[in-house]
Simulated scan of single mutants.
Amino acid sequence: MHFYGTIGPACASAGTLRRLVDAGMTGLRMNLSHGALAEHADWLAMIHAVGIPDLLIDLQGPELRVGRLASPVTLPEGGTVQLGAGGIPCPVQLVQAARPGQQLLLDDGKLLVEVTAAGPDALVCTVLRGGVLQSRKSIAAPGLSVPMPTLTSEDLANLRIAASCGVTGVMLPFVRGKQDILALRQALAEAGAPQIRIFAKIENLAGVQALPEFLSLVDEVVIARGDLGNAMPLWELPRCQKQLSAACRAAGVPFMVVTQMLDSMCTRAVPTRAEVSDIYNAVLDGASSLMLTGETAAGQYPVQAMKFLVRTANTAL
């Protein structure tokens, strides 16, 4: 069983990383949507000094995200916000594809807006569910196909130095089909790093439907429930997770379960009963890996969260 944390400000010290390893963490994820691999020399040095053997990088891939903001932006419910030119930066492909009536979920669905006017370079939206929006947070456009490239120029630059940085696995977000996996395989080969493992993140309905065609091409499947939960009514997500787990088991392909495993522990020292039950059931379903994201990257109790993750999972083995 593999247990991953995500590196971030809450755990970016050698002492905390050692305590995470002592708690049972076997590997780390680095989210490159918030900065290039070359910008994290200090983190890499700490990871290697502590002796963490398994390092995953999470690429940008065909994911939709808000751009860089000078400071967090408050979106009041009922207010208006502009996405694109003159407003909150977002991918131009989204601006060109969206039409009035399209709903957009921001930051894993914490915020919800609806497009009311679509111009050539900007979208005017009404805020249906408000909150504070920060830089580089996710955007989901349910039911809308947005033609994004498999790998960004930043992804390709990160892959070229991945092996020299000790990267052992690459997570590709929003896998849509076989061609995305083949594109990543080719990029790794061109980077001289064909040995690096591929983790395919299932985050949209296209990935769910195409899973059989690329299942044999990946090293591990990641059931990434954040954006996957935005792609369908939330009450349908547990059934989808069970179906994906069963497909991976039948094919003999390892899979990981991630997102909000212990979300309450970002601010609480003890998890909810539902969270520990969720972990236990993921292991019973055959998960070979579990991962914490915000809990270790930005939460108040990173080490305690890892202890609860590992100890709960081990009771199911």
Rank of each mutant, 00 (worst) to 15 (best):
S145K: 15
L94I: 06
R160M: 11
T80F: 10
Q82H: 13
A38V: 14
A269V: 13
T74I: 11
A163W: 09
P254D: 10
T315H: 10
A200N: 07
Q260Y: 09
A98D: 00
P76T: 13
C165V: 04
A316E: 06
L188Y: 02
G109N: 02
F3M: 08
V146D: 00
I196R: 03
T126W: 07
F199A: 12
T6P: 00
T315I: 07
L20N: 00
L37Q: 07
G169M: 15
P271M: 07
R239I: 08
S71L: 13
L228D: 07
A224P: 05
L123K: 08
D285H: 14
M232Y: 06
S138Q: 02
V50I: 08
S33M: 15
A189N: 08
A157I: 02
C165I: 03
R160W: 05
A224Y: 09
L64H: 06
M1S: 13
P76G: 11
Q102D: 01
R176T: 09
E154R: 03
V113M: 07
P238M: 05
Q134W: 08
R29K: 13
A250C: 11
Q195P: 07
S33A: 15
P9Q: 11
V73F: 07
F214H: 07
L244F: 10
T126H: 14
L292A: 00
F174L: 10
G169I: 06
L244M: 10
G101A: 14
G119P: 04
R129E: 12
C90H: 04
V222Y: 08
A305F: 01
V208S: 10
T6W: 02
I223S: 01
L262E: 02
V221A: 13
I52N: 03
G166A: 12
A141S: 13
L69H: 05
G229Y: 04
L28M: 15
V175Y: 00
V115W: 01
G5Y: 04
K242I: 13
I198E: 01
P173A: 03
F308T: 03
L159T: 10
A247Q: 14
L159P: 06
A70C: 02
L59I: 04
G24Y: 03
Q60H: 12
Q102Y: 06
V146E: 02
L128F: 10
R176Y: 04
V132R: 14
G51V: 06
T126N: 15
T74K: 10
G252I: 10
A118N: 01
N230G: 06
L105K: 15
A163Y: 10
L20F: 03
L133C: 08
P149H: 01
A316K: 12
N158I: 05
Q103F: 08
M261H: 04
T296H: 04
G51A: 07
G5V: 07
D54G: 06
T168H: 03
K307C: 12
I181N: 00
V270L: 05
G27R: 12
Q96E: 14
G35T: 06
L205K: 14
L159V: 11
G229Q: 02
A305C: 00
H2W: 11
L182F: 09
C90T: 14
G87R: 03
A122I: 02
E203D: 03
G252H: 12
Q300S: 11
T116K: 15
I57P: 04
W235D: 13
